[in-house]
């Protein structure tokens, strides 16, 4: 059973949530940048576009302490946080969190997930980079999901936690479910046997190994573990840092050997991890089709188009 919330009541609804929870929602920062932030006022919320920055930083921040060394003791970070709600997640964002769930088995991540309620909202205007429709996304993972229709939000309940939040709202008279319509389509994802195809070379030639694709990807989780020593040379912290497979140092071992030495091999590793490798292991695509890598690429590499050419769906490149 769905619940309904009049659109004009949304700010009030958020205000009530803010009394009990830390509320995180998309905020427009400037012309080009929008991101998830802890809000102080519900009016900050901006739902008109997909956020430039993905939501992953609230689960796997750029830097995060794993253990602390203090006075000869080792203190483990348990990932304890205040109960919080992330509002305004799109279907791609929620699916990306589901992807992360399968590769982040540590208690820090798990505790953060347990203490976070996810509220999704149906994305009305996928832009020219969005191809989520092609990525076989799950309709799950959220605690609540909002569909906007006419003057109301129709709210699908995904969990008991979610249900408790909307208990006081009216039941909907009819169920609403909307579907996406993407302009961009990734037609055939069966690319395993095209690994050695020459078509990748031209994309790799354009690639600057800047790693923007992996930074903006909501499902990229790879990290580095690094120690930092305090001035007393005894205490310190062991942290994990976001790192990118597009950097040469990513696979470098003691002695200096880097196993993915060329940009081509690193670029293909990104695409194949998203489309092939993760699927082999976990039974779903790692890519959620949000298009953030395409939006962020400074040289406008469009690997979705490349795959379509490769698999014969678009004969010519613009």
């Amino acid at each position: 059973m769905q619940k309904t919330l009049p659109k004009k009541e949304l700010l009030n609804f958020i205000k009530i949530l803010m009394e009990k929870y830390e509320v995180i929602a998309p905020v427009k920062k400037d012309k080009v940048l929008s991101k998830f932030e802890i809000i102080k006022d519900p009016r900050e919320i901006y739902l008109n576009e997909i956020t430039t920055v993905p939501v992953k930083e609230f689960f796997i921040p750029e830097d995060e302490t794993l253990v602390e060394f203090k006075d000869g003791n080792i203190i483990e970070n348990k990932g304890e946080i205040k109960p919080r709600i992330i509002f305004g997640l799109r279907k791609c964002d929620i699916n990306a969190i589901e992807v992360l769930d399968k590769v982040m088995p540590c208690s820090i991540y798990i505790n953060k997930r347990k203490n976070t309620i996810l509220i999704g909202i149906f994305c009305e205007k996928p832009d020219k980079y969005c191809f989520c429709e092609s990525m076989e996304l799950n309709d799950s993972g959220y605690d609540l999901f909002f569909y906007a229709k006419d003057k109301d939000y129709y709210i699908t309940i995904g969990s008991k936690k979610g249900e408790a939040i909307v208990k006081y709202l009216n039941n909907a008279k009819k169920e609403i479910k909307l579907k996406y319509k993407n302009k961009k389509i990734l037609y055939d994802k069966n690319i395993e046997h095209y690994y050695k195809n020459k078509i990748w070379d031209s994309d790799a030639e354009k690639c600057l190994s800047c790693s923007a694709c992996t930074v903006y990807c909501p499902s990229c989780n790879c990290f580095d573990i690094k120690d930092t020593l305090n001035m007393n040379l005894k205490d310190g912290i062991r942290t994990r840092h976001e790192i990118s497979c597009q950097l040469k140092s990513f696979s470098r071992v003691a002695g200096g050997k880097s196993f993915r030495d060329s940009r081509l091999s690193r670029f293909k590793h990104f695409v194949y991890h998203k489309i092939v490798y993760y699927k082999h292991r976990k039974g779903r695509y790692m890519c959620v089709g949000c298009g953030r890598c395409l939006r962020a690429c400074p040289t406008k590499i469009d690997w979705v188009k490349t795959i379509n050419i490769l698999t014969g769906f678009k004969k010519k490149r613009k």
């Binding site: 088995p105 540590c106 790879c222 990290f223 580095d224 497979c245 990513f250 696979s251 092939v276």
Partner: peptide
């Protein structure tokens, strides 16, 4: 334990 992605050889 298969989380950081650093030692991946393809899948």
């Amino acid at each position: 334990f298969g989380s950081c992605g650093r030692c991946q050889i393809q899948d």
